[in-house]
Write a protein that binds this DNA or RNA. Structure first.
Lengths: 223, 223, 223, 223
DNA sequence: GATGAATGAGGCTTCATTCAT
DNA sequence: AATGAATGAAGCCTCATTCAT
């Protein structure tokens, strides 16, 4: 447990001492990884500084030395987590394929459960934590913009139907995947996950221009 | 809290002193109501026994006398909350109107925020609490069955299109409202709530048979 | 250590739970006595909740149950200490004798060291604690009024010289005793204390009307 | 802190690394100045090593490198502070003017508050710290001798009344200014400070020989 | 000389729970 | 049934001090 390595040192900065040398940065990133794991596992409220200290094999003083206090630690972990490379980020290919892939990342799998468990805890906690709430909102808007852009590109490349309104389409997809996410949390079984995958594929297929091959081969169905 | 096994929902009264006389029952129900309110307001983890005692004007000893310990108290409150009559339960009218009304109850309003904040906290907690998870599942299935049935009735009465598959339709609606719910948590502003309302109305309208009046009058738009 | 009994239950109230039953009141007063002793002994800043708990043979939880937090505990102790009966309060006799007695209470003796050590710590702490500062001021004003009044009465009874301005006289005396107090802290030896006693007696003598016996017999020299 | 025995004031340099070169000495003196400021501002007990490090723009390691530990640092700072030149030390003019000036230095002003706040904290701490107590005593005696000497000189120059006993006069003045100091701490407002100034001037005036100009011109009233 | 990350004891406080009344 | 004082473990955080660099 608690050994996940996070993003590259250069990628994180705010909230912690500026100009931190690489060693410090690495240590902080390591600690944030531990926190991410613990939150995914036990929820935000159950997180204790002692837990973090023990799981990361440092003293409680060290945690506070780097992050001042628990709130800052949690927020930092959240920020770091949100900057974790999603698997779809490295996803190349056509806009339509990218869109499908991103949308399919909302399907729970063993390897991504951690992230989504983290996410749902964050969402619940954000109902009583303004800063976290704002964070969620920002992230959603970015997501919306990114998806919209993919739609625009897909239309331009002739993959997607010309009649699509990019923002509406993106929003509709986002609502769908979040709805499916909820359902997957409510019914966390293989069948539900399978259904979610099919449903998402169907939704993306519906955006494709006539004549473009639907749901494609094994590459696209990997999820 | 953690991992304690809970007893089946039906056995609820067995959680508390056996053979409780009505006065005792009333007292306990009153306390559970207080707990529900507090959880809605501050989340499950923030609940303290002292809070409950003060909010209900009894002593901490009394709380423990009735519920033995905190976990038991919380679970009892959750179970009780899930048995609270939803406002749409008393909703009469055509199946289509009922369906619309139930679906619209997923739109956040001041008065219902409490319930949905409670719900999201419950959902997050359920990712690490088997019994709560089971509870969620049961509730979802009931919801699905109820909505399906409304579709069946609506088709029978000629309000809804004949081509509708009841279960598919109900599930699709449920996914939609849960998606909109997530979005409303992510962006808790009036515009988002307004959008959610319109989107739900549109979805229900799409189920109506040609010739049936869409979205209806003020009665149906109350939400 | 830490067994000083404080004032009667009825005398204290503010800051702690109102309507506390006598038993609670007694417990709180007992705890405040312990705190008073500890502050006298080690200063305000050195006081720890654990210390209080151990010295009073209760748990730390109990301390916080009664006083919520350390600041409140200290302030309560200060208020209680300021309501401790000074030995001159029970002092009867002529106004001049009372004045002399009160003034002489500023001479350190083993039995009153505790109080004055407490006082000097309070005074130092009050330079960075507004509420404590205000408290000091109030107390000084009361003292000034009380001493002035004694002068008025003394003049009326013909013990003190008619030409005395009550407030000026009282203030002048207060400055003197506080100056002597500082000196006694700076040089805490028998000689300095003895000097302080003589100096105070001399100052009071100077207020007496011609013909009135000076510094008097053993009764008045008890201090 | 507590009860550690301190070394004699004269040995101060021995507290720090031996054979310190001038640069080291300067560094240490600089740090002591920072400590003095911080203590004046927040009291002795509130001082933290980190505070010192940040205020002086060095690392905590450097502080400990120079002073080994906190106690040593604080004591060194206190000793250094007591060796700071008072502004009246550079005061020239007649003995009477010097006496007035020194006495008036006990009147709080913005610029001297720091020193006196420091002093009162030191005095309170000295009730439980033998070495600090001895320090206070020594300083008082020096002050007494210095003031006595000024009286002697003043009498010799014909400024002060011949009947004055130098030591008695000096002691009486010291008691007065310490009394006024206490009052100024108890009531830290402009009116009290103003009163203290007048009172001291009056006391010094009372020492002047008949015919010598009282309280003098603006130069002497600068305080 | 100087740094600053790391330590861990110890400070304050919260809180579920117990128990005499 | 109900009370509420008392408990003590555990939470968060601070801080003097150490030590590898």
């Amino acid at each position: 447990m608690a050994t996940t390595k996070l993003i590259a040192p250069a990628a994180r900065s705010s909230r912690v001492t500026q100009n931190a040398r690489p060693a410090t940065q690495r240590q902080q990133d390591y600690l944030l990884g531990v926190v991410y794991d613990l939150i995914s596992e036990h929820g935000i409220d159950a997180l204790t500084m002692r837990q973090v200290a023990e799981a990361s094999n440092v003293s409680t003083g060290t945690i506070n030395y780097h992050f001042q206090n628990k709130e800052n630690l949690v927020i930092s972990a959240l920020e770091a987590a949100y900057q974790l490379p999603r698997d779809w980020e490295s996803c190349s290919g056509s806009p339509a394929a990218q869109l499908r892939r991103i949308a399919l990342s909302y399907v729970l799998r063993a390897s991504s459960d951690r992230w989504w468990r983290f996410w749902i805890n964050y969402l619940a906690a954000s109902t009583r934590h303004e800063e976290m709430q704002a964070h969620q909102e920002t992230r959603f808007d970015k997501q919306l913009a990114f998806w919209s852009n993919l739609v625009v590109e897909g239309v331009a490349k002739g993959e997607l139907r010309k009649s699509l309104d990019p923002t509406d389409t993106a929003r509709e997809l986002l609502i769908l995947v979040h709805g499916l996410l909820s359902v997957q949390f409510i019914k966390p079984d293989a069948k539900t996950r399978s259904f979610a995958r099919e449903r998402i594929n169907k939704a993306v297929d519906a955006l494709l221009r006539e004549g473009v091959h639907k749901t494609g081969g094994p590459l696209e169905r990997r999820f």
